[in-house]
Each structure stands twice: as structure tokens, then as C-alpha cells.
Amino acid sequence: MSENFEPNVVAFLCNWCSYAGADLAGTSRIEYPPNLNVIRVMCSGRVNPMFVVNALQQGADGVLVSGCHPGDCHYMEGNFLARRRFALMRELLNFVGVDERRFNMSWVSASEGAKWKDVVTGVVNNLQEAGPFTEFPRKKIDW
């Protein structure tokens, strides 16, 4: 893919850790790629796997789900439940031929502004390599 491809990434961030972590990165003036469309959710456990499918349908080139580190969930077990769910969803997406770089999950705490930068940079770089999502976005459908 061309160097200048700017992937469109939808990021579901948990309110308590990852959103705060991203915020910290911002207030600390840590620079990271601006390709993210952030959707704040209360917990990574709230992210329905269909959100991921829907994001891809609606034009995302990749999706990132980020929550608290295991054991730190504000709701005790939300991220554990999410982990199981997405471990399977990831395999399913991959099995139908969606490049595995398009779905990412991370644990970023409220104090990990630097890690947030690394995660986002990694995801965006990977997606730049993978190129635009062309498998089943709605846009490709001829009305």
C-alpha cells in the first residue's frame, strides 16, 4: 500500500482506564497518529462484538478495543469477559478472511500515556501496511 494511506480506526475505549490513558497522552503532549475515531464506553466488556463488524461495515479500516489491565476493571470482571469474547471474535473474523491486523485489543491504564502512544502507533502502522478494508464495507455496494 502507498505510504500516504491514512487508515480510519475506530477505537472503543473504556471510560476508566484507556480513555483516561489517551487523555493523559494528550495532556502530556505525547504525539501519536491522529487516525482514531474514539468512542468512549463504560467498560471494554460493553463492547458488543457486533460493534466491530458494524464499524468495518461503516468504513473503518481497523478497530481497536482497549480496556483496563486484567484485575483492574472498575466493574471487577468486564475486561475478563471482553477478553474471552474477542479472543473468539478475532479468530472468526480472521477465518472469513479479514486481515488479523484489522482487529486489535489492548490494555492501557490511566497512567500509561506512553503505552497508549505505542499501541496507537503500532496499530496505525500495521493498518497502513494492510491497506484499506475492501472486503465488506457498505460503501462498496452498488445501490
Binding site: 461503516q58 468504513g59 457498505r138 460503501k139 455496494i141 445501490w143
Partner: peptide, 9 residues
């Protein structure tokens, strides 16, 4: 609806 464009089908 897809983006700005909508249709009835």
C-alpha cells in the same frame, strides 16, 4: 443510510 447518501429500497 451510508454516509451522506440514503436510499429507500
Amino acid at each position: 443510510t451510508e454516509g451522506e447518501e440514503s436510499r429507500r429500497y
